[in-house]
Amino acid sequence: MARRVDASAGTPATVALVTAGVAFTPHAYEHDPRASAYGLEAAEKLGVPPERVFKTLVAVVDGGLAVGIVPANAQLDLKALAAAVGGKRAEMADPAVAERRTGYVVGGISPIGQKTALPTVLDESAILCETVLVSGGKRGLDLELAPDDLLAVTGGRYAPIARGR
């Protein structure tokens, strides 16, 4: 997989991957501002099965923030995310808080290169994929990389945190 980055695709996520020496491929697409399911939109526009496109969700777990990364066609199991990070209770974070702490806008929150490093959990279904796509740090940009590399660069771990696949 090539590490191709053009100036228009430069985000904190791509910078972090280049700095870490992680191979990735950026995939840009024309974001529709009316779209509300960003991961499913990316899958459709890029022609990739939604189980390979992962959405990044920020949750509050026992008062602290954590990141759950699940397939675009699934939902985040908040109880499972809480357990995966050693907590008891979780709820989705306020979008403004998620944006402030990650440095990204909703719909473009990348698990990579966040302003504040947060505990990160990738759904175990990613193990079945040679590569996965995650947000590149802005709407209309996804990054394709190996799931183990995603965990290495985020300091994350695998756990069964998705439901409804």
Rank of each mutant, 00 (worst) to 15 (best):
Y29G: 14
R100C: 06
L122R: 03
T131N: 02
F54D: 02
A43C: 09
A42F: 13
G103L: 06
G63S: 03
G87H: 04
L122K: 06
K115M: 08
A96L: 06
R101M: 11
L122M: 12
S135T: 07
R89Y: 13
D77L: 10
L128V: 14
A28M: 10
I112T: 11
E41P: 09
A66F: 01
K88P: 09
S36C: 14
D77V: 10
S125D: 02
A98M: 00
L78V: 07
V132C: 03
P49A: 14
E44D: 12
S36I: 15
A43V: 12
R101S: 10
V121L: 04
V97D: 04
I109H: 00
A82R: 01
A80Y: 04
G113A: 15
V53G: 01
A98L: 03
T131R: 01
L40T: 14
A80P: 02
A42V: 12
A90M: 05
I112H: 05
K88G: 15
L65S: 04
A43G: 11
R52T: 13
A37R: 13
V60Y: 01
L65V: 04
E51S: 13
L46M: 13
A42C: 13
A83I: 09
E44G: 15
I69T: 11
P50W: 08
G86D: 09
V85H: 03
V48Q: 05
A35D: 13
V67Q: 03
E124C: 04
Y104K: 06
L65E: 00
A42H: 11
G107E: 02
A93W: 03
P33K: 03
A74H: 07
L76Q: 04
E41G: 10
A117F: 10
R100K: 14
P71D: 06
E130N: 02
S135E: 05
G103S: 11
A84F: 05
R101H: 12
G86R: 00
T25A: 11
G39P: 02
G63C: 04
V132R: 05
L133R: 07
N73L: 14
G136C: 08
V134K: 07
